[in-house]
Design a protein around this nucleic acid. Structure first.
Lengths: 326, 326
DNA sequence: CTGAAAGCGCTTACAG
DNA sequence: CTGAAAGCGCTTACAG
């Protein structure tokens, strides 16, 4: 398994290394006959360009990072596969590698170094802690970065999000059209944009809704529902701000003798796998995760190609998926 | 943001580039005072080695690939986050990147090229199609690769697996100790090692078990259970070969008026997130996914460092997690 | 233990 | 359009 180099291709094709390089990189103007000769040489030798050598001169790694929260927190977000899938879709045809980094001790600093030393061209940040200083440092350093989801504090950074407010409104309207009279919501954590927006969007439609707080975890869903039925026994419609919480909440309803959706209608948010593993299956607000991830990749790529291009935010519209729970 | 090179570090420290390089790479024997001078120069300049340049000469990418089935099939495997977490744990301290590749058109060829052109030092193959020729090609080419799970056909390849047979036996014993008389199993696909072994392990303990086939998907779990209660109405204990199938199967039992575990005990396999989102929560066979993934990474790293080292298989013992379903 | 020098494989001004 | 040449930033025999 000898390494074939450009040098060799050039010799076989009877051209200079420069010309060979040009056809490898699809440069515009190379004589047709030479181009063919080089192409033949490439396939006859089985040539593959050495990426390290190329990187060294182009100063591009052709790799981007996906920074994820750690395993524990990932559990609250069943979207990983969809995110990877969406990013992959846009990035692979370009030969760009997707490197995964799960948050652990020193991960973010690691990512910063990788960026600075040119090992990564940019990063996508998922579920970053609102207090995390990394996004700020990144944009300050002018490094390509995009956020999954709106940052807590306004900052000049590119992000992709779903219209959380509109999604919550969709849930509210569903509950109202079901003739629910006593409507409640189990919220997400109020120190995150998603948690805040879903509550605000819901209250805008149902100002007198009973509000019980959760934190997006399944466990918090059961606790919140237990609290809710104690506090408001005649509740007949509830918007649970994440499918995972809804998945925890529904059995509580059952155990209390209430049927879903007959006695209490339940609408979730996310359309994650938890929506399908619930019984009954969840009516929920869908975010187009894969498309959103693809867009994040596109935005990142643009920033890489055009440094210092202006920050933008791209917001996708959610949709209601009606199933059996409400 | 000027790039600091080794050259510069050397000049600041008043040594040659070679010496600077040696301390950067922790080479054994460099004079204490020179070492210190270089270290000072490194931190004062904020030096970070250019990985591409290093790669070019060391011929190592310091990156490994994780080849996954596509999103659809991932759905049947809720372990992605755990796998990534386990691999990351061993790979990050070494500065090795984890690049994710989801199967799509041309992915496997892509991975082969990346390996050949030195962009990846090795790959971990997850859930490869039994008919996939890639693993074979890889080992034939002498490229570092490890499989998640035993290959269907015996081949000289390193893999890490859980003892599927023993796991199924654990489930069988649980059902027997619960005094179940009419025992059944819903199997995984019989063209996969996991599907085969879980059935064989179970039958070894309960030879007269009723067997209904599934394919590890949730949907197949509901179909199989519907079939089962029709065919064997007095069933009182069932081993479902994946949590996801069990998650689909339990509501079928409920709808038929049977209580779990009082009328029918259910034991799953995987201890995946579906075990917790089931109602009641699933008693199941746990595989230590994160540890297994870490071991895959270690094995791969060893192959990279010691080419042509012999193929080994590492088998982890499963354990029974008793919860509410059986 | 240390340094001068060669070389890893590519791209890209620069001439022609 | 094409080629000779320089250079990307590092590591590593090879002498000393």
């Amino acid at each position: 398994m000898k390494r074939v180099t450009l040098e060799e291709v050039a010799r076989v094709a009877g051209v200079s290394r420069a010309t060979a390089s040009r056809v490898v990189n699809g440069a515009s103007s190379v004589d047709e006959s030479l181009r063919h000769a080089v192409q033949r040489a490439i396939s006859s030798t089985g040539y593959l360009p050495n990426i390290a050598a190329r990187s060294l001169v182009t100063r591009r790694a052709d790799a981007i990072g996906l920074l994820l929260p750690d395993e524990r927190r990932m559990d609250g977000d069943p979207h990983l596969a969809s995110v990877v899938s969406g990013v992959t879709r846009v990035v692979r045809p370009l030969g760009v590698h997707l490197v995964l980094m799960m948050t652990g001790p020193g991960t973010r600093e690691q990512a910063m170094s990788d960026l600075r030393c040119g090992r990564l061209d940019g990063v996508i940040l998922v579920h970053t802690d609102p207090a995390d200083p990394v996004p700020g440092q990144l944009i300050e350093a002018g490094l390509p970065v995009v956020l999954a989801g709106r940052p807590l504090e306004p900052m000049p950074i590119t992000y992709v999000d779903v219209n959380q407010t509109a999604g919550a409104a969709l849930a509210a309207c569903r509950l109202k059209s079901l003739q629910c009279n006593r409507i409640a919501t189990i919220t997400g954590p109020q120190d995150t944009p998603a948690g805040q927006d879903r509550l605000a969007g819901f209250l805008a439609e149902v100002p007198d809704a009973v509000v019980v707080h959760g934190d997006f975890t399944r466990q918090s869903g059961v606790a919140a529902m237990e609290h809710l039925i104690r506090r408001c026994p005649d509740v007949d419609g509830v918007f649970v701000a994440s499918d995972l919480m809804a998945n925890g909440a529904i059995p509580v309803l059952h155990r209390s003798g209430r049927k879903v959706p007959d006695d209490v209608a339940v609408v979730g948010f996310d359309d994650s796998s938890a929506a399908l593993t619930s019984e009954p299956e969840l009516t929920t607000v869908r975010q187009p995760i894969t498309d959103m991830a693809a867009e994040m990749a596109r935005q990142l790529l643009r920033q890489i190609t055009e440094p210092r291009s202006p920050a933008v935010s791209v917001v996708f519209e959610p949709s209601l998926v009606v199933r059996d729970s409400g």
